Amino acid sequence: MLLVMAAALGAAVLAGCATAAPSPGAAPSPSAPSSGIDTDATLRCGDTPVPARALTEPRPATELSAEVLAVLENPLADVDEPLSDWLIAHETVERVVIMREREEPVDLGGGDIATYDLRAIEAADEHALPLDAPWGLVGAANCTPRIDLGTLTGAGVTLDPDALPDGGDERIVLLVTERECNSGRPATDRVELVELVETETTVEVVIGVRPHESGAFTCPSNPPTPFTVELEQPLGDRVIFDAAVAPAREISAGERY
């Protein structure tokens, strides 16, 4: 399913962002990140803003108006049944966005793994389908909810297969794949570490890419950009998470082009 996650850059969108160790008896398991979703934040799923509360307190799409439901029941919308599995991510008098978590995530490559399906429906749009209805489908996609990085853009993040981390390492080498158009070139000198959270059991990173100030670029796939994160202490057996996505996801090894 497609989700859009947004939160202001520098805002505390991650619950438990302090680097202090968990209190006794309350430490997370090695596979569980300390960060969670701030229900008051706005996320982005692709280009679509989605209130985090829509995910944490979901309303089923069956609660939508009869006119909108008629569009969703049209085969053109490609909305798999049951409709109750889809949640309302956004609803106004002119636009509705629904999402559904996928049973099997879609690996788009370079650490970009889509976990949701998304459908956008709008009223009286000349490009909407069906053309002769008061409401119509205007967009369909796969995405993963992400926090909003403000002026930075999100990126796919994997571990460098040529420099996989060892327990004694005090740094981790990542491969960061820019998602914006960059004429098939790496994001050299534009990758930024937005946030690093270290706990007893996890290392959680938020990575963003600073856009070019100007210029026109074509959109072939971009190669990954190596990026090193310095740790406060040796990695040990801690698990490394991408905390820019919601919920945070363990980072796995990628591929060099």
Rank of each mutant, 00 (worst) to 15 (best):
G46K: 01
V68T: 06
E67G: 09
T42G: 11
P82V: 00
G46W: 01
L43D: 02
T62Y: 01
T48C: 12
R44V: 15
P49M: 08
L69N: 02
T42A: 14
P75H: 06
L83D: 00
R59G: 12
D38E: 11
S84Y: 01
S65N: 08
T39W: 13
N74T: 11
L69Y: 08
L72F: 06
T48R: 12
A70V: 06
V68W: 08
D80K: 11
C45I: 10
L83G: 00
L64K: 03
L76F: 14
D80I: 10
V68A: 07
D85R: 05
A61T: 05
V79G: 02
E57C: 14
A66F: 09
L55W: 09
D40S: 15
S65D: 10
L43V: 08
A52F: 05
A66C: 11
W86M: 04
T42E: 14
L55R: 06
A77Q: 05
V50N: 03
A61Q: 02
L55I: 06
L55D: 03
S65A: 12
L64D: 05
T39H: 13
E81Q: 14
S65G: 09
T56W: 09
L64G: 03
L64N: 04
P58Y: 03
T48I: 13
W86I: 03
C45T: 12
R59N: 12
D80S: 09
A41T: 07
T48K: 10
P82K: 00
S84V: 08
D47E: 14
S84E: 08
L69S: 08
C45A: 13
